[in-house]
């Protein structure tokens, strides 16, 4: 793109608005967070972020998020495949319903999920007798996180699958590959970047999720308490410094995830652009 600074107006005003806005809403609050965290001594910091309760919360947060993201990756691939490759009645309706978790307030998701899987709930009445506790348990957390993250993988894989050249599969068939070999050796590797991006997006979202989990988990320390819930309960005890320290741990994990996503996207883009 040519440099349009001399031709088009509004560089100063648009950049000023952008920088001012980002400073007020993003930079200054972030600085406040890290300043607060750094006001703790090393020992206090360790004590805040590395209690037994906090460790249990991290483990649950990252574990449940990873499991939910893995489930969503498998389900997302299947959904994307079905939506791209097959025709069936009400396909468009199903396709758009996949975005519902983006549009539905997480509190509503939490509320309804907690009611579905209890003993006399619509689904719980079948599952609880089998010993499957889909509410107020770790399983409940995984379930609701799976719901919240469902669209990410579908929406990252779908366009890639759509743009895959039919000739790749034909070439593979001509070379003697079975349909399964074509899937595992040709299609799946082409989808890996999208699948990994989708996984990372789901995982990042699940780490920070609060609204839905707080309804379904029961929030029992050591058992079903996730890190964001722990932050809130520290805040309610007015233990701001401790809450901040735990928040920093979460934040660093999320930023790392964001970094990975960006790196992947750039690599995929680079691969795509150099191939043409």
């Amino acid at each position: 793109m040519m440099n349009t600074r001399r031709i088009l107006p509004g560089m100063r005003i648009s950049l000023s608005i952008t920088l001012f806005y980002l400073s007020i809403l993003v930079l200054i609050p972030l600085i406040a967070l890290f300043t607060k965290a750094s006001s703790l001594t090393g020992e206090q910091l360790v004590k805040a972020v590395w209690t037994e309760r906090a460790r249990a919360a991290y483990l649950l947060t990252f574990g449940a998020a990873a499991i939910a993201a893995a489930i969503d990756t498998v389900l997302g691939l299947l959904l994307a495949w079905v939506l791209v490759r097959y025709e069936f009645p009400f396909k468009r309706v199903f396709d758009s319903l996949i975005d519902l978790p983006f549009a539905l307030p997480t509190a509503v998701a939490g509320l309804v999920y907690s009611s579905l899987y209890v003993k006399n709930g619509w689904l719980g009445q079948f599952l609880v007798p089998l010993g499957i506790q889909g509410a107020y348990s770790r399983l409940a957390i995984v379930l609701v996180l799976t719901f919240v993250g469902l669209p990410f993988v579908v929406r990252t894989v779908q366009p890639v699958l759509e743009s895959l050249d039919a000739e790749l599969e034909e070439a593979s068939a001509c070379l003697g590959a079975t349909r399964w070999q074509t899937f595992t050796m040709v299609l799946l590797p082409a989808l890996y970047p999208a699948l990994i991006t989708g996984f990372a997006l789901t995982f990042a979202r699940a780490i920070g999720e609060y609204g839905s989990v707080v309804f379904v988990s029961g929030n029992m320390p050591f058992k079903t308490e996730i890190a964001p819930v722990l932050i809130v309960s520290r805040l309610e005890e007015f233990a701001y410094a401790e809450a901040t320290a735990i928040a920093v741990v979460l934040l660093v994990a999320s930023f790392a995830m964001l970094g990975v996503i960006n790196l992947l996207e750039r690599r995929t883009q680079a691969a795509n652009s150099s191939a043409h």
Binding site: E167, L168, S172, C174, L175, A177, P189
Partner: peptide
């Protein structure tokens, strides 16, 4: 042997693996 107009090479495979594909399967 079919050669496609836009080659349909497997971009995640090296030249070697592309050529070996038919024998691998």
């Amino acid at each position: 042997g079919f050669v496609f107009q836009h080659y349909a090479l497997f971009r995640h495979m090296s030249v070697y693996e592309n050529i070996a594909f038919g024998m691998r399967v």
